[in-house]
Amino acid sequence: MSVPSQRQLEKHIRASAASSSNVILTNHAKQRMKERNINDPMVMDVLRSGRLALPPEPDMKHPGLMCRMQRLVAGVNVAVVVYVEHPAPNLTVVTVIDVRKD
């Protein structure tokens, strides 16, 4: 199987995030969200409408890709790092970043 393009990954992440049941937040991501005053709807907005901010990177421990989606939401430039095993619809949110502060 070939590696998907960045555009294909964006479309896949957006389509998968259309159903919140496909999105899993790690404890680390929840902790960072709380620290950075970023809520669940903001994260979902980034996943559903954001853009890949950086090229996807292979995960060292797992067969999938780490993708950083980014979008301006409610005045905050939010980045969501999500683990993707294309073409599976499951998305695991690894961390959430307030880009202005990092």
Rank of each mutant, 00 (worst) to 15 (best):
A74W: 05
P63V: 00
H62S: 14
C67R: 13
M69V: 04
A79F: 00
V78R: 06
P55M: 11
N90K: 13
V94L: 12
P63K: 04
S5D: 06
N22D: 13
S20P: 07
K61H: 14
V99K: 15
P41T: 03
V99D: 06
A15Q: 14
N77K: 14
P56Q: 02
A18R: 11
A18G: 14
V43D: 08
V46T: 04
H86E: 07
E57M: 08
D40K: 13
P58H: 04
T92E: 09
G64E: 10
Q6C: 01
Q31I: 14
Q8H: 08
T92C: 10
M42H: 11
T26G: 15
A18M: 15
R7W: 05
V23S: 03
P58C: 00
P55H: 10
R71Y: 09
V46E: 03
M33R: 00
R71W: 02
I38F: 01
A17V: 06
R14S: 04
P89T: 12
D102P: 03
D45M: 01
H12S: 02
P55D: 05
R36W: 05
S5F: 08
R14N: 09
D98T: 01
P4W: 00
M66R: 15
P4A: 00
V3S: 03
K30V: 10
G75V: 09
E57I: 13
D59C: 07
N37W: 01
H62N: 12
V78Y: 02
H62Y: 10
A88T: 11
R68Q: 10
A74G: 09
A17D: 04
N27D: 08
H62Q: 07
H28L: 06
L9K: 01
G75W: 06
V3N: 06
D40V: 15
L72C: 12
N77C: 09
S49R: 13
R100V: 03
N77D: 15
Y83P: 10
R71Q: 08
N22H: 13
S21I: 10
V3H: 01
G75T: 03
I13C: 07
I97R: 07
R7V: 12
V99I: 08
R48S: 09
V81Q: 05
M1E: 11
S2Q: 14
L91Y: 05
P55Q: 06
M1Y: 06
Q8M: 13
L91H: 15
I13S: 07
V46G: 01
K61R: 14
Q6L: 06
V76A: 04
P41N: 00
